[in-house]
Amino acid sequence: MTIESLIPAHPTPPSMALPHPLALTRAGISGFPSPAQDYEGRTLDLNERLVKRPSASFFMTVTGDSMDSLGIQDGDLLLIDRSIEPRPGHILVALVEGEITVKRYQLKGRHPYLCSANPAYPPIPLEDLDCQVWGVVRSVIHEYPV
């Protein structure tokens, strides 16, 4: 049986322990509580920190450079939360002419626009019928080559 045939379709990503050593050993003298005891089993969980609403959270990969100057680069991982009401200033994933795109939501005067961080790509009026919000980007994960 290969790993591929397993199907983990769970909404809540399991907690992942950070690889730091746990201080589980007791101090030498028996009956003497270890100062580390209060911290037993406590690890930092990135899911807990980043994923606020698992049922509405999705991941996507960025392709393209139009959001570079906002710190969103080609190959970055986007964490999208569909439960958030979009507000000006938010980075959004939106459907533009049937394509999934990442843009910044901005007001120009009183009209809402989807903007890139690159002047080569003109702003798209959000009132266009061909344009629909998919979700709000909650965080961007950039992994450095190490």
């Binding site: 392709t63 393209g64 139009s66 959001m67 795109t101």
Partner: peptide, 15 residues
């Protein structure tokens, strides 16, 4: 498998 596999995530165009 868009929502359950890292190698199969949807791509969001920054173009």
């Amino acid at each position: 498998r868009w929502s359950t596999r890292w190698p199969e995530l949807p791509s969001a165009k920054a173009k």
